[in-house]
Design a protein around this nucleic acid. Structure first.
Length: 565
RNA sequence: GCGCCCGUAGCUCAGCAGGAUAGAGCGUCCGCCUCCUAAGCGGAAGGUCGCGCGUUCGAAUCGCGCCGGGCGUGCCA
């Protein structure tokens, strides 16, 4: 349980209010002279039918304060709580020690399953910068939910079906050859794809030919299927390089083709439940009552659509994983699509429709316009990661020439810079890709956090103290700089809980930065090694705790925590 | 046209289940390495919170209306 929660319980116990309500009302005052936690009582005025200052006074008088709180004070409609520095430092540091890498976690999930649909790349198309958000947000949420006690199922819903395969086969047979594709992999496929679109502008017939080839895939034609599988395995092999760099692995790669034989069930069920309407040859679910355009599930030529497949996948996932929640980490462009088919699932009578969540994020564009796969205007994610690693290597060579294993550290930090960048703001913001920003290592960046971690490690290493004793004089950590570190660490669990609640990884990123900023200030102002023994011990304990929280925070957003850099 | 989202410092963004004097990073300017990693730390300058009206004891935060931008809007995904 985190500290605001413990405080909320204490207040709840003597006021007859609900702790769950109170815990989200507790805030951190803008100024340190106003205390460490505050409870604004204004919102309680309506339910309790008393004036806020009166409520504040009641709470102040009647609450038996938790051990880490020294006193409470009424200021206007607020109750300000002042922590007992040594007791709070003790409570926080011990909590970090006891929980280790699980600090900030909980058992809220109780082993229930959460499906997370993320990254979801297209086969035979480049893994480009536009896929970064879904990939890293999904991965961070995976770890955050795990931290909260859920069992996560990471699903890469591959785009491995559709006419683009017909186009590719046509292009391959006309202008490609085996050796060239084997060697160039996705880049060669992309060239073929671009060539197809160029040629198809002049020759309409190519599109018919492409459709015919796709039909042959659908009909299990041997040659077509062989090429299809070949393109797929080439792509998966290639993208695994990027996933390896990011440290990401999926539990399932069940994508579009996987659901080919599972869509008739959807149509039949919709029919049975009298939800289908025939309109101009197409079958759809009317949603005008909900102020939405209809959800088309069967085209007039009999083909299924995106929505049909998503409904089939949701049914399958519910059957297979019995999820408590199913997250779709997909760009906000598809907001309407998700609202439509979520509604359809609800109309089908499934109460778990409410557990389907579209985790939307903003779009990435280039300074000179949007990305276009068809024209070959893409920035490969791997290219960005490699550039970041390369730059990191230069920085290391310059700043830490003696570092052993430079390439490994450069990978951790370079990749970390790019990933961090995508996880530092709320998801919904659009992003214009900029090399300057992706490769910035100063300020509130991944490398800054990793640097602080390495700095903590350096102190602990140089102190050459085998074990920091359990019992230490926490009084020695009551100075403002040390207490800032304590407060930042104490706030961390709340941030993780909220990040899971809101599906917003940046809340974790920012909480970690707060710990780093506090620690760096502490480090600059206070000497750690070489002080009188009890002081050194206390400060080492603080350093060890900070290192641990930073390491956990980095893990949760998917970054490595190098010990030297 | 309609729907969803965004608009806070020069730039990028926090803050928005209303609450205490609106914060951070970058950039600019000025300081700090004979001392545990300067990828660091400190300071200065910089804001009619897009505009208006309303609700409220109190609005960056809630409602309505504008303005500006992005996305979407029946057989792509």
């Amino acid at each position: 349980m985190d500290f605001p929660q413990r405080l909320a319980e204490a207040v709840a116990a003597c006021c007859g209010l609900e702790a769950a309500v109170l815990q989200n009302m507790i805030e951190i005052p803008p100024e340190s002279n106003m205390g460490d936690f505050a409870l604004p009582c204004f919102r309680l005025a309506k339910t309790l039918r008393k004036a806020p200052p009166v409520i504040a006074a009641d709470i102040c008088q009647n609450t038996s304060l938790p051990d880490f709180v020294q006193r409470a004070e009424v200021v206007g409609g607020y109750v300000n709580f002042y922590v007992k520095p040594n007791a709070y430092a003790k409570a926080v540091i011990q909590a970090v020690r006891e929980n280790g890498e699980n600090y900030g976690g909980s058992d809220e999930g109780a082993g229930r399953n959460v499906c997370i649909d993320y990254s979801s790349i297209n086969i035979a198309k480049p893994f480009h910068i536009g896929h970064l958000s879904s990939t890293v947000i999904g991965h961070a949420l995976y770890r955050i939910y795990q931290h909260m006690g859920y069992n996560c199922v990471g699903i890469n819903h591959l785009g491995d079906w559709g006419t683009q395969f017909g186009k590719l086969i046509v292009a391959y047979k006309r202008w490609g050859n085996k050796a060239q594709v084997e060697q160039g992999s996705i880049r060669a496929l992309l060239d073929l794809y671009v060539r197809f679109h160029e040629e198809a502008e002049k020759d309409e017939y190519l599109n018919d030919e492409a459709r015919a080839w796709f039909k042959r895939i659908e009909d299990n034609d041997e040659e077509a299927l062989e090429l299809f599988e070949w393109f797929k395995s080439l792509t998966l092999k290639e993208v695994s390089r990027v996933y390896d760099m990011l440290g990401i692995a999926f539990d399932s790669y069940a994508g579009e083709s996987f659901y080919n034989d599972k869509m008739s069930r959807v149509i039949e069920e919709l029919e049975e439940k009298h939800l289908l309407k025939l309109d101009n040859g197409a079958y759809l679910v009317d949603l005008s009552e909900y102020n939405m355009p209809p959800c088309i599930v069967l085209r007039s030529d009999g083909a299924t659509l995106y929505a049909t497949r998503d409904i089939a996948a949701a049914l399958y996932r519910k059957d297979t994983y019995d999820f408590a929640k199913c997250l779709y980490v997909v760009a906000y462009q598809q907001d309407l699509h998700f609202r439509q088919w979520f509604k359809v699932v609800e109309l089908m009578g499934y109460p778990w429709a409410k557990d389907l969540v579209h985790v939307a994020f903003g779009m990435v564009s280039m300074q000179d316009g949007t990305l276009s796969t068809r024209k070959g205007k893409v920035l490969f994610l791997e290219e960005v990661l490699n550039a970041a690693v390369e730059k990191t290597l230069e920085v290391i060579t310059q700043k830490s020439p003696d570092l052993t294993d430079k390439p490994a550290v450069a990978r951790q930090v370079g990749v970390g810079a790019v990933v961090w960048n995508a996880l530092y703001n709320s998801r919904i913001k659009d992003v214009v890709f900029s090399w300057d920003k992706a490769l910035n290592f100063d300020g509130e960046t991944g490398p800054y956090v990793q640097y602080t971690h390495a700095r903590c490690c350096a102190v602990l290493r140089k102190a050459e103290v085998a074990d920091i004793p359990e019992s230490l004089n926490y009084e020695l950590l009551s100075d403002e700089n040390a207490m800032r570190v304590v407060r930042a660490m104490g706030d961390f669990p709340r941030a993780v809980r909220e990040a899971a609640e809101k599906n917003e990884p940046y809340l974790v990123s920012r909480a970690v930065v707060a710990v780093c900023q506090a620690f760096n200030k502490f480090y600059y102002e206070q000497r750690i090694i070489g002080e009188e023994e009890s002081v050194q011990t206390a400060r080492l304990a603080l350093t060890a705790a900070a290192r641990s929280v930073i390491s956990t925070g980095l893990y949760l957003v998917g970054l490595a925590a190098p010990e030297r850099m």
